[in-house]
Design a protein around this nucleic acid. Structure first.
Lengths: 354, 354
DNA sequence: ATACAGTTCTGAATCGATGCAGAGAGGTGC
DNA sequence: GCACCTCTCTGCATCGATTCAGAACTGTAT
């Protein structure tokens, strides 16, 4: 049994509070007494105040939760998520705050329970799927949070850091449209809750499930509408899981159709890289070349020569954490829109003449 | 003010314990009463038992700490560390346990405090620097831990997962020696606590500071001793920080010397990639080619064509977490040595004739 | 000696839950 | 009607600290 603060107090012959002060408020007692107490503690093997008890009494924990509304271990396979985490960790570090990564068990009830049980002072919610229920729990707990994706019932006072998904997506699609492409596939995760990998038909972009995906697809559609290509003429393809493999599987067979797409606009770089994988696998490789765009500009995109939309991943994480850790007094400053930029590389080009 | 369990009890007209049971031990009360309680809780906006109070009373927290004995945000720039984290997260996920990432503030005292204050049930200690003090704190707290690097005062009963650093390093060096290289540089982080980037002289490998580095350098030296090249004939180069930049800086000028090394054995892939960067920068590129080996086999190594020693990163993380989360009854099973393999790629070749 | 200001230290209430031993209610068998 | 068993449910002690108001001491000025 580890000694408690009580035991140390008895050993030295002072009160509990004095020992507590020796640890937490050195100005409340003489240096000599403090040393005497710390020595006794060392002697007894007292490892300092119990963190849990201290948190309970003080009313805060000193750590923030990072919530991925998908499998946690998946987050470590997503380069964008990793850069985001790096940003959060930098800010946490500067604040002397720990980060709690909370894995969500499958099943809504258990997942709720996991969010309810997280001992944290607030949450950075990194959304990759439907996350309303999680925000509900967090609000119920009265904890502050920062969300990083648009969602449907966002209050005006909600802290947020993100990008203008629609405009950013528009920039990529306008580039592709400008190159002359008219037969185009849109590839995304989160189109419908349970869509299998592969093409599917939706009456409109408003039916898209996940808000981030909805924003990006809307941006893509906007740009093509401007050149006279309607929603119905675009090929929508679902790639559930946002992995290279899922993307490759989803577009399998797409280019063997009668009038195949000459370009694929992907909702993320990971998906785009999967498309490039699939194209490279074809007999003769990617020839005549299909144009491909991604989204995020993860480190791998540069070496793959992928045209993509850059968004500042690490900064997103950093700002999310900072918004949480020292909230701006002006509520308007709690809503941060980051800049994006179209990065044109080798994966896009004019429509090949056939 | 959020309502407490007490408030719910009063609202329903039952005792506190009954409400507690409604949440934590549904078998202790009738389904009907439980529903009534949960409903009332919802009505009052009670978000479920306070995690901190619950942890205090129960005596465990439900989360494990992951300790990087370097800057936390740095961990997210190290591909090996990320794979390790991915492994830990997978195991944590399966156990319904959260992961607490604890950043260590600069300064030993503050860093100690951070480890003392972490609300966790145990630690996975990922060591990249001198970590004895951290293990001391953890032991003082009476918490279980798993270490992933050799260290000097390891008890026999200590849980550990790692590789035979010396033998693994030997395999890489023997390969290079077998190709005929005799003028060789060894590049590593953690050679001495404060060594600047660049060559330095040590009387023997036993003087090397960090145990992991010491093991690897010893393995390199072993292989060259076997072909008659002694420690004094090897060029030792320090690259503090284990980054590509540090490596490139450390080897700057190395190849403009009178009898430059024909091969560089790096203590990690990150360093090796930095050496390749530096070589590519030279006028004429890497010509005549200097052979380079790495260590770890991170994802980037394959595309860079780097010869390296593979160790299973993700499995290391997974096993570390599992060793912590359900300790083997047989203490011998608490010491896991993972296999390594030499992966020969394009970055090594015979000594160019000049 | 007395008064008074400054320090240093103490006592007791409190944070929000858990879990055990046992009370009470309801039912069955003889 | 009584003993006994099973379920539910309650009361209370407890986890390990923090914090604030005020007590006790120290020292100086009068």
């Amino acid at each position: 049994m580890k000694p408690t603060l009580q035991a140390v107090a008895e050993a030295v012959g002072v009160s509990r509070s004095t020992v507590s002060n020796a640890y937490s408020r050195p100005d409340q007692l003489s240096a000599a007494l403090r040393e005497r107490i710390l020595d006794a503690a060392r002697q007894l093997g007292y490892p300092g105040p119990n963190p849990t008890a201290r948190s309970l009494r003080r009313g805060f924990v000193g750590s923030i939760g990072v919530l991925f509304t998908s499998q946690l271990s998946y987050a470590f396979t997503d380069p964008f998520a990793i850069r985001f985490l790096a940003g959060v960790s930098g800010a946490a570090e500067r604040h002397g705050t720990s980060m709690l990564l909370v894995p969500l068990p499958p099943g809504q009830t258990d997942a709720r329970r996991a969010v309810e049980n997280a001992a944290v002072d607030g949450f950075c919610v990194y959304c990759v799927a439907d996350e309303e229920w999680a925000l509900d729990v967090i609000r119920d707990r009265g904890l502050p949070y920062v969300s990083t994706a648009p969602h449907d019932d966002a209050g005006a006072d909600e802290r947020f850091v993100g990008i203008d998904e629609r405009a950013a997506a528009h920039s990529a699609a306008a580039h592709v449209a400008g190159l002359g492409h008219r037969r185009v596939a849109l590839l995304a995760d989160g189109v419908l809750p349970d869509a299998p990998a592969g093409p599917l038909t939706l009456s409109g972009v408003h039916e898209v499930w996940h808000p981030t995906t909805r924003g990006r697809l809307a941006g893509f559609a906007d740009a093509f509408a401007e050149v006279g290509v309607g929603w119905a003429e675009l090929t929508l393809v679902s790639a559930p899981g946002n992995s290279r493999q899922a993307a490759a599987a989803a577009v399998a067979g797409l280019f063997d159709r009668p009038a195949p797409p000459t370009a694929v606009l992907a909702g993320s770089d990971v998906l785009a890289l999967g498309v490039l994988d699939a194209l490279a696998q074809r007999p003769g490789g990617n020839n005549p070349p299909v144009s491909v765009t991604g989204f995020d500009d993860v480190p791998e995109a540069a070496s793959a020569g992928l045209t993509t939309v850059r968004q500042p991943a690490e900064e997103k994480g950093r700002i999310a954490a900072e918004l949480l850790l020292d909230p701006p007094t002006d509520p308007a400053a709690g809503h941060v829109l980051l800049p994006t930029a179209l990065v044109v590389r080798a994966s896009t080009g004019p429509v090949p003449r056939s």
